[in-house]
Every structure is written in structure tokens, then in C-alpha cells.
């Protein structure tokens, strides 16, 4: 009895979670130009509009470019840092961990306004470099946390074995440790990329006209009357998120298979 009530409530909550997304995606295939059902017919005109637009198309390249560059930077900095934190103990580790995780908890509006103020005098506002740096700072904690989690399954005795066999610490890391934690590193990179892809507040404050990303343009599009091209953009971001979710799922499956 209680279990049945639980199922009813649970399914209703699942519907609540999915309904808005499933409501917006079909609208983007509408042949008409209004935002409700029933659709007057199906067409790809809003997607043609999207890919032919000076408003949206540059934003796609900006989002992908800034996302990839910031994910690469975050992974390059975050992976060795996670390895270092894993070997560390005591107070220094706690302080370092606090700094590394801070971008996850500090409200992003504070980061955005602070960066606007700091980047202004050094000419990083309205540049791609500024956006990449800001997004890398926001994405790095996700890399560190993910890599640390995959290091939990790594037996440090292997490093001692490697050094007994004559491998230096660098060689031991690259030949013994990195191959085993690679799925975790890749998952961290995907998390960092997704962070950049989702991020809108920093983009609102420090991006110039040449750096406008997809979420930033969506925000602008939502402030006006919402066009169906905006729903096409939303549908494409949904697709991208599903792909990223699938990639992370696949990587985590690999980690489980390889980590045993």
C-alpha cells in the first residue's frame, strides 16, 4: 500500500523532471511559428534558420571552441593536481583542497563580477582567452574530484613496484598510473567541457560580441519574445547534453571494468 503510493509519487516526480524538456523539443520541429500544441505540421525550418543565422552559428563555434580549450586547460592542470592531492596529507592538503573546490561553491555571479573588474585593466574582457581562463577555473574542480575518485581504486603499491624496477616518478606516473585512471581523467574532461557549455553568467559579464556562447545567446533570445529558433537551439543543447551523458556513462562503465 505504502509502496504503491511511493510509486505514484515517484512516477509523478519523474514526469515533472522530464516534461519541460519533452515539451520544448518537439516545438522546434513545428511548421508554424507559435509556442503551443498542437503543431500545425512538421518542418525543419527553424533548424535552417538556426544554421543560417549570424546570431546563432558563431555562438555554436564559440561554445565548442571555448568549451574544448577550457576543458583541455582544466584537465592539464587538474590531473596532476589530483595526483598531488592524493599523495598529500594533513593541513596543507585541507587548504589546497579548499582552494581547488572553491569554484564549485562560490556563487558564479561573484566570480563573474570579480573577473569583470580584474580582467578589465589587463585587457582580458571580451577576449577568447579571458573566457577560456574563467571557464577553466570553474571546470578544474570537477576534473580534480573525478580524478581523485578514480585514484581511490588505484593501488599505490604499484608505484613503489615501478620505482623498484627502476622507473622514475614521472615514468611511473605515465606508464603505470595514468593508463589505469585514464577513464576518470576523460570523464573529468567531459565534466569540465559540460561546465563551460552550460555556463552563462560569466559569459554575460565578460564576453564581448565575438565571444558570445550558445547559452549567452539563449539568454538574450529569452529576454525578447521567444522565437522557435530559440527552441531549436535548446533542442540542440539537449542533444549535446545527452551525448555527453552517454560518454560519461560509457567511461564509468570502462572504469568499473578496468578498475577491478
Amino acid at each position: 500500500m505504502a509502496r504503491a503510493a511511493c510509486w505514484v509519487a515517484g512516477v509523478l516526480v519523474a514526469v515533472f523532471l522530464l516534461a519541460p524538456i519533452f515539451a520544448i523539443v518537439p516545438l522546434s520541429f513545428s511548421a508554424g511559428s507559435f509556442l503551443f500544441y498542437p503543431l500545425p505540421g512538421l518542418s525543419l525550418r527553424w533548424y535552417r534558420d538556426f544554421f543560417g543565422s549570424d546570431f546563432w552559428l558563431p555562438a555554436v563555434w564559440n561554445s565548442l571552441g571555448i568549451g574544448l580549450a577550457s576543458a583541455a586547460l582544466a584537465t592539464l592542470l587538474g590531473t596532476p593536481a589530483a595526483f598531488g592531492l592524493w599523495r598529500m596529507k594533513g593541513r596543507f592538503r585541507a587548504v589546497a583542497m579548499g582552494i581547488v573546490l572553491a569554484p564549485m561553491v562560490v556563487p558564479v555571479i561573484v566570480v563573474a563580477v570579480a573577473l569583470l573588474l580584474a580582467f578589465g585593466p589587463i585587457g582580458l574582457v571580451a577576449t577568447h582567452a579571458g573566457m577560456v581562463i574563467a571557464h577553466a577555473a570553474l571546470g578544474a574542480p570537477f576534473v580534480v574530484v573525478t580524478v581523485l575518485a578514480s585514484l581511490e581504486a588505484f593501488d599505490p603499491v604499484q608505484l613503489r613496484a615501478a620505482s623498484a624496477c627502476g622507473a622514475g616518478p614521472l615514468r611511473a606516473f605515465f606508464r603505470v598510473c595514468l593508463p589505469q585512471i585514464a577513464p576518470g581523467v576523460a570523464a573529468g574532461a567531459v565534466f569540465a567541457f559540460a561546465t563551460s557549455l552550460d555556463e552563462v553568467v560569466v559569459a554575460l559579464f565578460i564576453a564581448g560580441p565575438a565571444q558570445r556562447t550558445l547559452p549567452r545567446q539563449m539568454f538574450a533570445g529569452l529576454n525578447d519574445t521567444i522565437s522557435l529558433t530559440t527552441t531549436a537551439a535548446a533542442a540542440m543543447l539537449v542533444l549535446l547534453s545527452v551525448v555527453l551523458l552517454a560518454v560519461v556513462g560509457w567511461l564509468q562503465g570502462r572504469k568499473k571494468a578496468g578498475g577491478g
Partner: peptide, 24 residues
């Protein structure tokens, strides 16, 4: 060596995150 590995990220965050927020 552990501190050395963590240093680049800490330095990066100090410059691009902690210092701007503190200055603000």
C-alpha cells in the same frame, strides 16, 4: 613532489579566481 604537482593548479586558481574575488 606532491606539492609540486598541485602547484600549477593552485597558482592558476590563486591568480584567476582567489585574487580577483579578494580584490573585488
Amino acid at each position: 613532489s606532491a606539492a609540486l604537482l598541485t602547484a600549477p593548479l593552485l597558482l592558476f586558481l590563486l591568480v584567476t579566481f582567489v585574487a580577483p574575488i579578494a580584490a573585488f
